[in-house]
Amino acid sequence: MRILLDENVPVQLKPLLVGHAVRSVNDPDIGWKGIRNGRLLERLEGNYDLLLTADKNLCFQQELIGRAAGIMVLPTNRRKQVLALAPQILAALESVSKGGCVLMQLDGTVSNWFRGE
Rank of each mutant, 00 (worst) to 15 (best):
E94T: 13
E117N: 14
K14Y: 00
A69P: 00
M72L: 14
G100L: 06
W32G: 02
K33M: 15
D55C: 14
L51S: 01
C59H: 15
L58G: 10
V110I: 15
R2G: 07
E63S: 15
A91N: 10
L74R: 04
M72N: 07
M1F: 08
T109D: 08
N77P: 00
S111G: 11
L83W: 12
Q81Y: 06
L16N: 03
E42K: 12
I35G: 00
V110Q: 09
S97Q: 12
V96S: 09
V11F: 07
N112C: 06
D27T: 09
A54D: 11
E63R: 14
R79M: 13
Q88V: 02
G100E: 05
C101D: 11
C101V: 05
L103S: 07
A54R: 03
G70M: 03
A91Q: 11
V82M: 00
G38H: 13
P10Y: 06
E63Q: 14
L17I: 03
G31Q: 13
V110F: 08
Q62H: 14
W113V: 00
I89H: 04
R79P: 02
G70V: 05
K56C: 07
S111R: 15
E94C: 08
R2T: 04
K33N: 12
N8V: 02
L93N: 00
N26A: 12
G108I: 08
L74K: 03
L40E: 11
D6M: 06
G70N: 05
D49S: 12
L74Q: 04
L16Y: 04
D107P: 01
G19A: 10
L90G: 11
S97A: 15
Q12D: 12
K98R: 15
R78D: 06
L52Y: 10
E7V: 04
A68C: 05
Q88C: 05
E117K: 10
F114I: 10
Q105G: 02
G99K: 03
Q81E: 13
P28F: 14
L17Y: 01
S111T: 14
Q12N: 12
Q62E: 15
P28I: 15
S111Q: 15
G31E: 14
I30C: 11
P10H: 08
A92Q: 13
Q81W: 03
L83D: 04
G19C: 11
K14R: 10
K56N: 13
C59W: 15
M72F: 10
T53P: 10
A69V: 03
V18Y: 06
G38Y: 13
E42Y: 13
T53I: 13
L64T: 13
I89N: 00
V25H: 01
G108C: 06
T76V: 11
L13P: 02
L103K: 11
E94K: 15
A68H: 02
S111H: 09
F114W: 14
V102Y: 01
F114M: 12
F60K: 15
R78P: 00
L74Y: 00
P87M: 06
F114T: 08
Q61M: 09
D49P: 02
Q81I: 08
A69F: 03
A86N: 10
A91H: 06
G100A: 11
L16S: 03
F114G: 11
P75L: 12
R78G: 01
P10F: 02
D49W: 09
V25N: 00
L5R: 04
M72T: 06
E42S: 13
A68Q: 06
L51A: 10
G31F: 15
L85K: 05
V102F: 07
F60M: 14
